[in-house]
Amino acid sequence: MAASEHPAVSKLRQAFGDKILDVYTFRGDTVVVLDRSVNVEACQLLRDDPDLRFDFLMDLTAVDYLGFGRVPRFEVVYNLYSFANNLRLRLRVPVPEEDPVIRTVTHLWKAANWAEREVWDMFGIRFEGHPNLKRILLYEEFQGHPLRKDYPVNKRQPLIGPIN
């Protein structure tokens, strides 16, 4: 399906205009690149619009584009799925390195809670408004965010002992 045929694309363009930075299709996946100022509104529209009904947040993750030399450095990626229309859509939202903050979507999908915690844990991107933003896979004393490209893969951290 070409990007222009995807029903979500025209609705998003209509609602957010120049906040839509890019739209393309690669290997059959339609991708919309959004400005981070409208991430929650776009998600809300996609979820609640009666024609679109992207009711599944299948996955929420991030990518560190340091190796591409891209500015802004991070991208938060939403993989959405509409059960009613059997359609997938991917949203990519660039997040700059100096201010790695994006608004949470936990109030739209409960699935976002742990997924956003994992992104915080692994990439150090903060989610504004998240009810419980703490590390999930690693321990609280862990230094740094390991899936960032500048975190050395062979770096070791001291083992932590019991608290008392």
């Binding site: 990518v63 409960k110 809670n113 742990w114 997924a115």
Partner: peptide
């Protein structure tokens, strides 16, 4: 691979 992300089904199940 530049990045491999797995969407693990039971990560989302355990959350509930």
């Amino acid at each position: 691979a530049y990045r491999v992300r797995v969407r693990p089904p039971c990560f989302y199940l355990m959350q509930a």
